[in-house]
Amino acid sequence: MTSIPKPAQVLQQRTGATIISGPWPSYAGFRDLPERDRCVLYGSAKAYREALELQGLVMSESYDEFIKRVTAELEI
Rank of each mutant, 00 (worst) to 15 (best):
L57M: 13
R38C: 04
D64T: 14
R14V: 02
F30M: 04
M1Y: 09
A51T: 08
V10Q: 10
F66H: 13
L57E: 08
G29A: 10
G43P: 12
M1L: 07
L11I: 03
Q12L: 05
I20Q: 13
P5C: 04
L57W: 00
T15A: 10
E65G: 11
K6F: 01
Y48L: 12
A51S: 15
L52P: 00
E53T: 09
M1I: 04
Q13A: 10
S3A: 10
R69C: 08
G16C: 03
D37R: 10
R69K: 10
S26C: 12
S62L: 08
V10G: 02
A8P: 07
L41M: 13
G22Q: 05
K46A: 09
S44D: 10
K46S: 09
S44P: 01
G29K: 06
P7Y: 01
Y27A: 06
V58M: 08
Q9L: 02
I20G: 06
S21R: 03
G56S: 09
L52N: 11
E35I: 15
S60Y: 00
E35F: 07
S60F: 01
S60P: 00
D32C: 01
R14L: 05
E61D: 14
Y63G: 05
V40I: 11
P34F: 08
S26W: 04
A45N: 04
D32N: 11
L57V: 04
Q12G: 12
E75N: 07
W24D: 15
P23I: 05
V40C: 00
A8R: 10
G22K: 00
R49F: 01
C39F: 06
V58L: 07
I76W: 13
G29Q: 06
D32Y: 02
P23K: 02
R31Y: 10
L11Y: 09
P5V: 03
Y48H: 12
E61V: 15
L33H: 04
V70M: 09
L11E: 07
R69D: 14
L41D: 03
L57H: 10
Y48S: 14
R31L: 08
Y48W: 07
S44G: 13
M1Q: 08
S44V: 04
Q12R: 07
V40L: 10
S44A: 04
G22R: 00
I19E: 11
I19V: 15
Q55C: 12
G43R: 08
K6M: 03
S26V: 15
Q55N: 13
A47C: 05
L41E: 04
G29P: 15
I4V: 05
Y42E: 05
A28I: 15
P7N: 02
T15P: 14
D64W: 12
E75D: 11
V40N: 03
Y42N: 03
V70Q: 01
Q12D: 13
R38T: 09
G22P: 07
S60H: 04
A72S: 09
P34E: 14
L54G: 14
I76S: 01
M1D: 11
T2K: 10
I19C: 06
P23M: 06
A17V: 01
D37K: 12
K68L: 12
T2Y: 11
L74M: 13
D37C: 03
E50T: 09
T15F: 02
F66E: 00
T18G: 05
E61R: 02
E73P: 01
F66T: 05
I4Q: 03
V10S: 07
V58C: 03
A51F: 03
R31D: 13
E65I: 14
